[in-house]
Design a binder for these strands. Structure first.
Length: 500
RNA sequence: GGGCCCGUAGCUCAGUCCGGUAGAGCAGGCGGCUCUUAACCGCAAGAUCGGGGGUUCGAAUCCCCUCGGGCCCGCCA
């Protein structure tokens, strides 16, 4: 089997690894430990770069030695002098070795046993090479961890998409771009938390394991508790427990966490993905639009600061810096499609229109489904700038509150960037009897018993959910938008893959 | 669910159309070189061509099955 062939066991040694194991044995015989315990006093490669700023080409500063540590990427040997590129999280630093500092025997011994991929500590003088490269003129070396397995090719790196995903550590160690993308992700999540905390939202954690996964319609993953002797489902959304907290008086809550949907994976869907949901009492979807705009403007600014050379990040930052466009779902669909009086069309007319644009959804679907199909076909591809799509027809959205002035509509917005849906928000439905009717209507449309409805949620609403707004944001897609990553797998460290 | 494409040395690729039993660069080995940065020069080594089966005197190449991956379409509050 292919996966078995590629993921060969560690004992299946190739000749390159045998060479490196021989070097380990040789180091030990010389009294050098190839896997020592620590390397105190180490500074970032940035510190060395800074220290070289006032030196001229060919100069070194022997009076101020520094210690750095990282992974050896390339080695260039010139007889009695040599260079190596050392990568740490802050970048790549050139190490400069000479017989003059290391001695004839020491110099040759070190180079004989050093390989690309080794984790190395070096002490030496900040220096600038004759060609002007900031460097560390090495006076002593410490091997910190011998790499037995050779790293991918130094220039092209790891290209095989399967290997990049299955063995992310190789992708990360050989690709600064990949490392930076995940650093950006961490930063964006931290910024998001800060933004919500400053707006007095309380971060909470709600259960992943539930008797019934609700809050969206998607096939859940199902598991079992031995102790309870009951079936449990992994959550598909965060909505229902968070709204219960508003009933309880917490007023502003949010959660960032994994949700699970037992469905197909593609470039914008992952079975295991990270969702942010926030609920805000005594506010409506207009307030939520302002919060979303300010959040994305802030994320864009921070991303642009840390990735000044990434054109897609810069473009996204610019796009999010000003107010989003707003388009009315129905008006925009009519304008783009040329269809008049959309709201007076019969179900059959809508079905024929959907069929005409190539949709194959079942003929017995509700009118909302046909409207969504038409919207996807005529409007979505045009939504490249950050855009709010607002006030959807009621039949497309069973869980939002009826619009206060537009008949037949709900107070809802979705927001898009470059044709990708980034999130979805409502003025939330808080009438318990209306909620129960909609749940039951939804159940009757689906023959599948696993979409059983959450009675306790309706009971909670009977105690009084304050008027409120809520939003769901796909965190993975947020990172895609700000990094320009083409696939959701590029922003998830360990995406699902067949075990083979 | 439908279609298209990919899998060859540790890594990046060529060779597949038109069958004659595999070629390069990097990495590794040996030798040379005291300022290179995809360092360079020389020598030698490294692959049962994702797996299985078939056709054939002969298969990386053609056919069938299969595993893994990618893209597009469909489906998916």
């Amino acid at each position: 089997m292919a996966a078995g062939e590629k993921g060969r066991p560690v004992t299946d040694e190739n000749p390159l690894e045998r060479e490196r194991r021989d070097k380990v044995a040789r180091l030990r015989s010389q009294g050098k430990e190839p896997f020592p315990w620590s390397f105190p006093g180490r500074v970032s490669s940035n510190v060395v770069r800074t220290a070289t700023a006032r030196l001229r080409a060919g100069e070194e500063d022997l009076a101020h030695p520094l210690r750095v540590a990282g992974r050896v990427r390339a080695i260039r040997v010139h007889g009695r002098t040599a260079f190596a590129d050392l990568d740490d999280l802050d970048g790549s630093l050139q190490l400069f070795f000479r017989v003059d500092e290391l001695g004839e025997a020491g110099f040759h011994a070190w180079l004989a046993d050093l390989d690309p991929g080794d984790i190395l500590g070096a002490e030496g003088a900040p220096a600038v090479s004759r060609r002007g490269e900031p460097s560390l003129l090495v006076t002593s070396l410490t091997l910190l961890a011998k790499a037995i397995a050779p790293p991918p090719e130094k220039f092209h790196g790891l290209k095989d998409a399967e290997e990049r995903i299955r063995r992310r550590y190789i992708d990360l160690l050989s690709s600064p771009e990949s490392r930076n993308r995940f650093r950006l992700r961490s930063l964006l999540v931290a910024e998001t938390r800060a933004h919500l905390a400053e707006a007095n939202f309380l971060e909470v954690e709600t259960p992943v394991l539930l008797p019934i996964a609700g809050g969206a319609v998607a096939r859940p993953f199902v598991t079992r508790s031995s102790y309870l002797d009951e079936e449990l489902q992994l959550r598909i959304a965060l909505e229902l427990p968070l709204k219960r907290l508003l009933v309880g008086g917490l007023e502003r809550v949010f959660e960032i966490g994994k949700c699970f949907r037992n469905e197909d994976m593609d470039t914008v869907h992952s079975p295991e993905f990270t969702m942010l949901e926030a609920y805000w009492a005594y506010a409506d979807y207009h307030d939520m639009r302002k919060l979303i705009e300010s959040l994305y403007a802030r994320l864009g600014r921070r991303a642009a600061e840390v990735a000044p050379e990434d054109p897609q990040t810069q473009e996204a930052a610019k796009a999010f810096a000003s107010s989003f466009s707003t388009v009315d779902f129905v008006d925009e669909l009519e304008a783009r499609s040329g269809i008049k009086d959309l709201r007076s069309k019969s179900r059959k007319e809508l079905r024929d229109l959907a069929k005409a644009v190539g949709s194959t959804v079942p003929a017995e679907s509700s009118t909302g489904v046909f409207l969504d199909k038409l919207f996807e076909h005529y409007v979505e591809p045009t939504l490249s700038a950050p855009t709010f799509v607002v006030d959807h027809p009621e039949e497309t959205t069973p869980l939002a509150k009826r619009h206060r002035s537009k008949p037949g509509r709900v107070e809802r917005f979705e927001f898009y960037y470059r044709g990708l849906e980034l999130g979805n928000a409502y003025t939330e439905l808080n009438d318990p009897d209306e909620q129960e009717r909609r749940f039951r209507a939804q159940l009757s449309q689906r023959k599948v018993e696993q979409y059983a409805f959450d009675e306790d949620f309706v009971r909670a609403l009977r105690y009084g959910l304050p008027p409120c707004t809520g939003v769901g944001i796909g965190v993975d897609r947020m990172v895609m938008a700000l990094s320009g990553a083409p696939s959701i797998k590029d922003v998830i460290l360990f995406p699902q893959a067949r075990t083979g």
